[in-house]
Computed example of a mutant assay.
Amino acid sequence: MSERVEIGSIYVDSGTVFVGDPCYTITGDASNHIKTWSEWCAKAPFGQEPYDVTEPAGTGHGLSIPTLYGDGGYPVYAELEGGRVARVIIDFAPESDGEDE
């Protein structure tokens, strides 16, 4: 059985989060570095992919995932198994948690 704990928050100003290995995209010498925000947006267009999830750095190099409500702060949780992170959950609708219960 896993244990769920809050591990932090992320703050969003682009309406999206990126999940990927930074060695592929972050630094100037990264193999799939995206140099400008304009280049990023051109590679991550809205309304063209299922759920608007895109792979702007290339297949398998990370996912650009839009949030439910756009910009803001979102809590991040980890599900732990044996003291290690098994899953990460970003809650894009924290104010609605528990309303339907």
Rank of each mutant, 00 (worst) to 15 (best):
Y69H: 11
E49D: 10
T59Q: 14
Y69S: 05
V76I: 15
A57Q: 08
V17F: 14
A44T: 02
R87P: 00
W40V: 05
E3P: 00
I26A: 14
E81D: 05
C41W: 04
V85W: 03
K43D: 02
D91C: 04
E55Y: 09
T59K: 15
D52P: 00
D29K: 12
A44V: 01
W40H: 13
V88E: 02
V17I: 15
R4G: 03
I65H: 14
A30C: 01
I34C: 11
E6F: 06
T25K: 02
G60Q: 03
P56D: 09
I7W: 06
D100G: 07
A30Y: 05
E3Q: 12
D21N: 14
I7F: 02
D91W: 02
G20Y: 05
F92D: 05
A93W: 06
E95A: 14
R84F: 03
R4N: 05
A93M: 07
V5I: 15
S64R: 09
T36C: 07
P56Y: 08
N32S: 10
E49C: 10
E101I: 08
G20S: 04
L80C: 09
V53L: 01
P66Q: 14
G58N: 10
W37C: 00
E79W: 01
I10R: 08
V19K: 06
S2G: 10
G72L: 07
I7K: 10
R84E: 14
I10M: 08
T25Y: 15
G8A: 05
C23Q: 01
S9N: 12
S2M: 15
V5K: 15
S31Q: 11
Y74W: 12
E99I: 12
G28N: 09
V76M: 07
T25M: 08
G60W: 03
M1H: 12
T54E: 04
D52M: 05
G83Q: 05
V76G: 02
D97Q: 15
V88L: 15
D100V: 13
S38T: 07
S31Y: 00
V12D: 02
D29P: 00
G20N: 06
G83R: 06
I65K: 12
R4M: 13
Y77G: 07
F92Q: 05
S64K: 00
S31T: 13
Y69M: 02
L63A: 15
I10N: 04
F18H: 13
E101H: 03
L63R: 13
N32D: 10
G83H: 06
S96N: 08
Y11A: 13
S38Y: 01
I26V: 11
E81L: 02
R4D: 02
G83T: 04
V5G: 12
I90E: 00
G72Y: 04
G58S: 09
T25P: 00
